[in-house]
Amino acid sequence: MADKNNIPQFVNSDSFMADKNYVKWLSDLKKRFRMSQLKAAVTVNTEMLKFYWSLGEDICEKQKQYKWGAKIIDRLSLDMRSEFPQSEGFSRANLYHIKRWFTFYSSQIEFVYQAGRQLQKVDNANTPVPEILLCVPWRHQTVIVSKCATINAALFYLNKVVENNMSRTELEHVVEA
């Protein structure tokens, strides 16, 4: 059942097709369902970003506290992928991205706050996360942090993503230009 030009498509042809009230209700249900799917995806993204923020803080603190070197990220990657084989977020490369992301923004947290950005407390983290980070998908975040040398540049691109609802490909093109 596919929408073509907003005209509802029906599985079976019967008397309901002629009922304008049914057609309107069906159209409304489809829109509501799509909005629910979008809201669910945004909620999942937000919660994963909060987890990544606390994980980044944990990695930094544990390496400092126990004087663990870079090998701890390799070990953590192996252990977490073993426990959660269906999850893609625990590759060695992604754990480095998480640490770098946390370090980049947390080192400038006061500046971010003074720039008019709200901070949000995250469970299992001492450092609050800038709320704007929770509005941008993870892969966008990795592009921004890897390409921006300053917090001002990063905030600029974060705002662009939010304002223009940019895809990652669009973001990459804009950052490269």
Score class of each variant (00 low, 15 high):
residue 109 I to V: 07
residue 160 K to Y: 01
residue 54 S to L: 05
residue 68 W to V: 02
residue 145 V to E: 00
residue 86 Q to Y: 07
residue 8 P to M: 08
residue 159 N to K: 06
residue 164 N to E: 13
residue 172 E to M: 04
residue 106 S to G: 05
residue 9 Q to L: 15
residue 83 E to L: 13
residue 130 P to E: 06
residue 116 G to A: 05
residue 21 N to Q: 09
residue 42 V to A: 15
residue 36 S to N: 14
residue 135 C to K: 13
residue 5 N to T: 03
residue 62 K to V: 13
residue 60 C to H: 04
residue 72 I to P: 02
residue 35 M to A: 15
residue 36 S to C: 13
residue 174 V to Y: 00
residue 16 F to N: 07
residue 73 I to D: 07
residue 111 F to V: 01
residue 47 E to F: 07
residue 68 W to Q: 09
residue 33 F to T: 02
residue 20 K to V: 15
residue 145 V to Q: 03
residue 131 E to V: 08
residue 43 T to A: 15
residue 95 L to F: 04
residue 52 Y to C: 12
residue 177 A to V: 00
residue 105 Y to W: 15
residue 68 W to Y: 14
residue 137 P to L: 11
residue 25 W to D: 13
residue 21 N to C: 06
residue 17 M to H: 06
residue 26 L to T: 01
residue 131 E to I: 05
residue 39 K to N: 14
residue 55 L to T: 04
residue 6 N to R: 07
residue 26 L to W: 02
residue 26 L to M: 11
residue 2 A to P: 03
residue 125 A to G: 06
residue 82 S to I: 01
residue 59 I to L: 04
residue 169 T to M: 08
residue 15 S to W: 08
residue 81 R to F: 09
residue 38 L to K: 11
residue 49 L to E: 10
residue 137 P to A: 13
residue 142 T to Q: 07
residue 96 Y to R: 06
residue 108 Q to H: 09
residue 52 Y to R: 02
residue 149 A to C: 08
residue 101 W to A: 03
residue 54 S to E: 09
residue 19 D to C: 10
residue 48 M to T: 07
residue 19 D to N: 14
residue 42 V to D: 15
